[in-house]
Nucleic acid binder design. Structure first.
Lengths: 161, 161
DNA sequence: CTCAATCTTGACAAAAAAGTAATGATTTGC
DNA sequence: GCAAATCATTACTTTTTTGTCAAGATTGAG
């Protein structure tokens, strides 16, 4: 259960765009340099993000990428969904076991855990926008404070019964 | 952000052991058959789980695996931590970018998100025990209901400011 | 119109994760 | 003590994920 390279770098590239002033844009070489990844890699990520409609690209001299929407209107759950390659929906379809009937289907106790975990993560991500990720670590950490607090409360609730 | 094959199958193997009566045990071929994976694969997973102290193995005829502790005392966060291969702690150490100074270190807005997400997932997992995963899907789903409810409430709280 | 800067796209290569195979060690039953 | 059943361990193969390369397409400047 961890964030993939594509998720992390894709998100980082978007955050770079989110830091720009209204009239600015960033080229692939600039994005690559700022995140310490290759230009080719940045190109692939931006291509994905462009296809998904998060950024707009202009070619030619003075071209580059800008966000398609205000950073405050881009929620992390949407972004991660695109970068995460596959959906949780087809989790059980992509089963590789040897049985004819997938053990993942039908009555089993694991599936709710996988689906439930996914929902919890989505819920948390949907509360964060790109705009909230601009700035220093301490600032962003404060945003998460609220979430953690409630999580802790939730834990105590559950222990009571 | 998804569960890995190792995490899922490892967890499944443990759940199989959790369904046993006190005096029973399962051999590798039995576990493999029940989960629809190869015996070799089951062997590797059980080896990991044994090293981590979740199960006890006995060799020879009539050998097999049993849980080291009652299923109600094994929390999913411990299990996932072992099966997940790497820690969140060294996330930034394992950086593969081309810059001398890792962009992941120091002041950045992404790190709290990664760490925070991890904490949220851990918190949710720590509330679930193996014992709760025994039984049919509907029953297990009910366990998650509480968590989801609180998550939703949390979302609303955040929207208010 | 032509060139340089830039994004686009698909094929390819490298690395990581997952899964398999083979050999060795331990225990039980006879 | 020997053979069968079982787990333990390491090396290897396959698959998936990441990352790179190279050729193409579009735009703006002069």
């Amino acid at each position: 259960m961890k964030i993939s390279a594509q998720e992390e770098y894709g998100l980082r590239c978007l955050v770079q765009l989110a830091t720009l002033e209204a009239s600015e844009s960033l080229t692939l070489p600039q994005i690559a340099e700022r995140e310490g990844i290759s230009q080719a890699n940045a190109g692939k990520l931006m291509w994905l993000l462009n296809k998904a409609g998060f950024v707009q690209a202009t070619r030619g001299t003075k071209g580059g990428y800008v966000l398609s929407r205000p950073a405050s209107e881009i929620h992390l759950n949407e972004v991660i969904k695109i970068l995460d390659a596959d959906e949780i929906g087809n989790h059980c379809e992509s089963y590789t076991g040897v049985l004819d009937s997938c053990v993942h289907k039908g009555d089993c106790g694991i599936r709710p855990v996988i689906v439930g975990l996914h929902e919890i993560v989505q819920e948390a991500l949907s509360q964060i926008t790109l705009a909230q990720l601009v700035g220093d670590e301490a600032k962003v950490d404060a945003t998460f404070h609220q979430i953690k607090k409630f999580e802790r409360k939730l834990g105590q609730e559950n222990l009571r019964h």
